[in-house]
Design a protein around this nucleic acid. Structure first.
Lengths: 252, 252
DNA sequence: TATGTTGTAGTTGTAGACAATACTACATAC
DNA sequence: GTATGTAGTATTGTCTACAACTACAACATA
């Protein structure tokens, strides 16, 4: 019983958290969705994907159920799995969820006042500012999502992190789902700075309001409301569909 | 192509969403956790449970992965599945997530001002008031959770609903995880009334604050901080473990 | 021509068998 | 007596095969 106990009864060494095959496959699928290798709406043949990953259908199907629970994949009995599409009212709902999570993150950051955590958000903002000086909409979009991820990550809540990691992917899906292609705002950095300033100032009210404003704007952009009123930049090429989507996974 | 299209191109009739076997199993597992039939920390033998449900291990394992994604089950490679335990810092994190979701629900309810939706919350509150007049801690606890569920349900967001349905189960798990047994506050109704009043008054500030206060109190109750300062009632019998946990599921 | 039916191919859903891993108990060495 | 090694047992992890379902196309029929 006393295998490696420190004096106060707390184990001094923990079980190494090996990743299961299902974990690896699920991660691979998420990456494929994020990168666009698995295009939105794609029907994924289990046999084919299992072969590409070098596993059999069983663990693949188990991993797929995780993404189904997240809402990233949609399963229809007899018709299998396809990558979820997010559009119309779903876009609005997605940003409702993001508002809930990111608002709480702001609140937590202000309450805890952890300098190191806030610094993480700050460096993400700097990345965004840099990217927005360039003219590559894709890297702006990536930095944008990175910032929001950093914001929630810094809040230190395991559950909010889990929610956000799915929401980031769903946001990506929503972007892909827009028929016009990738759309980004020109002046992203400014409104994001407002959030960070509010956090530094300890002003919950302003911070939450800034988050909400950002979300409303994003919904308008993605659902195409008042397209003339928004200062956006559109990029063609909705997404490239490659024949071989997935790399075989290496167990380590 | 034009099989049942209304004039605007939106399908007028949708595919009936048949429930897959995996759906049914997942639902059954969640029910078993909610009811306590699957006790917290229980290792669930796949063979045994599959037999009880009258299915083979494959769909059971797939369903289990859904609950793993939700955090209700914990999977360890080589050691299989067990019902998650929620205690210590996890309790706090759980209520952080609930605060995020329920605060946003309050905000949505106030913004939309949908009388029918608010009425749903009101009836849940009445149930809670009734239960709190009685002395059965279990029915008080149930009505409490029902109220919070109704609150989020009324907000009308699909994603918040999904989060909340898991959070309700996690809250239940947290209750079961308390070694002293079921613990409820004596004056539950009052603080819940504050939330509803704030919604009716359109006062976001007060509503959100009331939610936060409720959550803080719950964390204190469950983590056993200042036990003397809280007006709580404890019930023994942490949970009865029945030999046969699950009913065979009927496909309909 | 349009609609309904039937056959066929391909896919998914489930079950069972096999292989790999982890737990238990016992034996053995220090 | 404690600790380490080893065998046996049981469970999980993965694969393969079969059954069931869906989609598509060719054909028959009104």
């Amino acid at each position: 019983m006393a295998q490696h106990m420190s004096q106060n009864g707390v184990p001094a060494v923990f079980r190494v958290p090996r990743a299961s095959t299902v974990d690896l496959i699920a991660r691979e699928l998420r990456n494929a969705i994020y990168s666009g290798a698995l295009a939105v709406g794609t029907q994924l043949g289990e046999k084919e994907i299992a072969q590409q990953l070098g596993v059999s259908r069983s663990p693949l199907r188990e991993a797929a159920q995780r993404l189904v629970q997240e809402g990233l994949l949609t399963a229809t009995p007899g018709r299998g799995l396809r990558v979820s599409t997010i559009r119309g009212e779903q876009v609005n709902d997605l940003y409702v969820a993001r508002t809930a999570v990111e608002s709480e993150a702001v609140r937590l950051l202000i309450n805890h006042d952890d300098e190191e955590a806030i610094a993480g958000v700050e460096s993400a903002l700097e990345e965004l500012v840099n990217a927005s000086r360039g003219r590559d909409p894709h890297s702006i979009g990536d930095s944008d999502l990175d910032f929001h991820w950093a914001l929630v990550d810094a809040a230190g809540s395991q559950r909010l992190r889990r929610y956000m990691s799915t929401l980031v992917l769903e946001t990506r899906i929503a972007s892909f789902s827009v028929p016009e292609g990738f759309v980004v705002r020109r002046n992203v950095a400014a409104s994001h700075e407002t959030i960070l300033e509010a956090i530094r100032a300890g002003d919950v009210e302003t911070g939450v309001a800034a988050v909400a404003a950002l979300m409303d704007e994003a919904v308008a952009r993605l659902t195409g409301l008042e397209p003339g009123a928004l200062d956006v930049e559109t990029v063609g090429e909705p997404h490239q569909t490659s024949a071989i989507a997935l790399e075989p996974l290496s167990h380590h």
